[in-house]
């Protein structure tokens, strides 16, 4: 597959299997403590008020309503929600996922500098995290041709995450 002309064109790609109610995801979490990665799966969708909903089904049910500054966490059975502020250093990851789920990846370009680079799967749009010394050390959107496949993260604790979009458990 040829590389897209530029990052804007690359980010026009859509994940496969976009569902009517959102996008399925499967996340693989790698950490030095783990022999096998932890796998999580569920769906992303956007609520009417613009909140990004991450509905995790596996390994534990968890609904995360990701607002502008906070995340409201609850499991399927719990009525009371736990309110957690969004740590500044994971904001780029959540902003990127939100832009992809909304289907307006151009929003990423409004906030962050990006670079289009080749990747073993096709291409990657690497988001420039600036001089931030938070949890994230690398953030990239991976795709092949006109298909957007995953978001990859490297973490300062030696961990790594890959969120495959359009693929459920």
């Amino acid at each position: 597959m040829p590389m897209p002309a530029n990052a804007t064109a690359a980010l026009d790609a859509r994940p496969p299997g976009v569902l009517r109610f959102g996008i399925a995801y499967r996340e693989q979490i790698f950490h030095p403590a783990l022999i096998q990665p932890v796998t999580a799966a569920g769906t992303f969708r956007i609520a009417d008020d613009g909140t990004l909903i991450r509905a995790q089904e596996y390994p534990e049910p968890e609904i995360a309503e990701i607002g502008r500054d906070t995340i409201r966490l609850r499991d399927d059975l719990e009525e009371e929600a736990n309110l957690v502020p969004i740590p500044e250093d994971i904001e780029p990851m959540l902003a990127t996922v939100r832009a992809l789920v909304v289907g307006e990846p151009g929003r990423i370009l409004e906030t962050y500098s990006v670079a289009l680079l080749p990747h073993e799967e096709g291409w990657q749009v690497v988001v420039d995290l600036g001089n931030a010394t938070g949890a994230l050390t690398h953030l990239a959107v991976i795709g092949c041709g006109e298909t957007l496949s995953a978001v990859e993260l490297d973490l300062s604790d030696g961990g790594r995450r890959r969120i495959d979009l359009g693929r459920g458990s």
Partner: peptide, 17 residues
């Protein structure tokens, strides 16, 4: 390990492990 999968796991998961 379960907490790693939570949306907050990116920030705190490593501390808990």
């Amino acid at each position: 390990r379960t907490a790693l999968a939570s949306v907050t796991g990116v920030g705190f998961g490593d501390y808990l492990l």
